[in-house]
Simulated scan of single mutants.
Amino acid sequence: MTDVSLHPAEAPRQGSPALLDIRGIEVIYDEVILVLRGLSLAVPEGKVVALLGSNGAGKSTTLKAVSGLLSTERGEVSDGSIVFDGKNITHFDPARRVRAGLSLCMEGRHVFEHLTVHENLVAGAYGRRGGNAEDFDLVYSFFPKLADLRTRVAGYLSGGEQQMLAIGRALMARPRLLMLDEPSLGLAPLLVQEIFGYIRNLNQETGLTVLVIEQNARRALEIADHGYILEQGRIVIDGTAAELSENPDVKEFYLGMGDAGRKNYRDVKHYRRRKRWL
């Protein structure tokens, strides 16, 4: 099992080039429901960035906007722009974004359950005609358990194995930016630790840029260089992983490290009112 006991990484250097630059985007569904409200964030090349927030904050919508998948749910970017590697990709179709170097692991894994592990990986490299031996070697070297299970039908894998497969399948596209939507969802704590260890190792050993969307703020900040907190469709605070880990409001609302003795309802209500970013 991979060890993930490490301190938060150093912050991106000032002036470090952003591989992904989201500039004040608004996202609207069904022409009336405004979900993202002028969201801006940057993902420097070679870094791990965590986007944190509660259910309904707009985290998955952000990834769908970057991946070009909003139209499948009657959504659209109504304002702002999404720049990847210096190019405005706001209106690129999903396939063109994948060819540009974006790869997404969707929430819930979504492996092809009727295909084997190896066939799932082949599908991940569809745009590159199934990949080559080097691609498979890379995936199997980072996920040796998948190498042992390469002939197993994916539907019979455990949740942790399916998450490894989903990440491995995304790597088959040779992305420059890997986006992960709730990789810890539905996994036991030890498996969550293992999965985040793999993410850290991929970044450190290959230089892969990663944007991870998570509710498990503690695990995400352990591997991230920088973090953003999203509430009600807006970025309300950002900083290095170390800064966010020490922020008193982040501790209270996302890390579960507030005053355990606060039990009076009036005190709780008053504390929530002083939440600085709202």
Results as ranks from 00 to 15, higher is better:
Thr2Tyr: 06
Val4Pro: 07
Ser5Leu: 13
Glu10Pro: 12
Asp21Met: 09
Gly24His: 03
Gly24Asp: 13
Ile25Leu: 08
Glu26Val: 15
Val27Met: 04
Ile28Asp: 09
Asp30Leu: 13
Glu31Ile: 15
Ile33Lys: 12
Leu36Asn: 02
Leu36Met: 04
Arg37Ile: 13
Leu41Tyr: 07
Lys47Leu: 04
Val48Cys: 03
Val49Gly: 00
Ala50Ser: 05
Leu52Gly: 05
Ser54Pro: 13
Asn55Met: 10
Lys59His: 11
Thr61Met: 00
Thr62Ser: 11
Leu63Ile: 14
Lys64Pro: 00
Val66Thr: 03
Ser67Arg: 15
Ser67Cys: 09
Leu70Met: 06
Ser71Trp: 11
Thr72Lys: 09
Arg74Cys: 11
Val77Trp: 13
Ser78Trp: 02
Ser78Glu: 01
Gly80Tyr: 03
Gly80Val: 02
Gly80Leu: 00
Lys87Tyr: 06
Ile89Ser: 07
Asp93Ile: 06
Ala95Ser: 14
Arg97Val: 01
Ala100Tyr: 01
Leu102Arg: 02
Leu104Thr: 12
Glu107Lys: 08
Gly108Pro: 09
Arg109Gly: 06
Glu113Ile: 07
Asn120Leu: 01
Leu121Asp: 04
Gly124Leu: 00
Tyr126Phe: 15
Gly127Thr: 07
Gly127Lys: 14
Arg128Val: 08
Gly130Trp: 05
Gly131Tyr: 02
Asp135Phe: 02
Phe136Ser: 10
Asp148Met: 10
Val153Ile: 10
Gly155Asp: 05
Tyr156Ser: 15
Tyr156Trp: 10
Gly159Asp: 04
Gly160Asn: 04
Met164Phe: 04
Ala166Phe: 00
Ala166Val: 00
Arg169Met: 00
Arg169Val: 01
Ala170Ile: 05
Ala173Leu: 06
Arg176Val: 15
Leu178Cys: 14
Glu182Phe: 00
Glu182Lys: 10
Leu185Val: 03
Leu187Ala: 06
Pro189Ser: 03
Pro189His: 00
Pro189Ala: 03
Leu191Arg: 09
Gln193Lys: 08
Gln193Ala: 13
Gln193Cys: 10
Glu194Phe: 12
Tyr198Lys: 06
Asn203Met: 00
Gln204Lys: 09
Leu208Phe: 05
Asn216Phe: 04
Ala217Glu: 11
Arg218Cys: 03
Ala224Lys: 04
Gly227Val: 07
Gly227His: 06
Ile229Asp: 07
Arg234Asp: 11
Ile237Asp: 05
Gly239His: 02
Glu243Phe: 08
Asn247Val: 08
Tyr254His: 03
Tyr254Gln: 05
Met257Asp: 10
Gly258Thr: 03
Gly261Trp: 13
Gly261Cys: 14
Asn264Gly: 10
Asn264Val: 13
Asn264Tyr: 07
Tyr265Trp: 11
Tyr265Ala: 15
Arg266Trp: 13
Asp267Val: 12
Val268Gln: 15
Lys269Gly: 09
Arg272Phe: 15
Arg274Tyr: 12
Lys275His: 04
Lys275Cys: 11
Arg276Met: 12
Arg276Thr: 10
Trp277Lys: 11
Trp277Arg: 15
Trp277Ser: 11
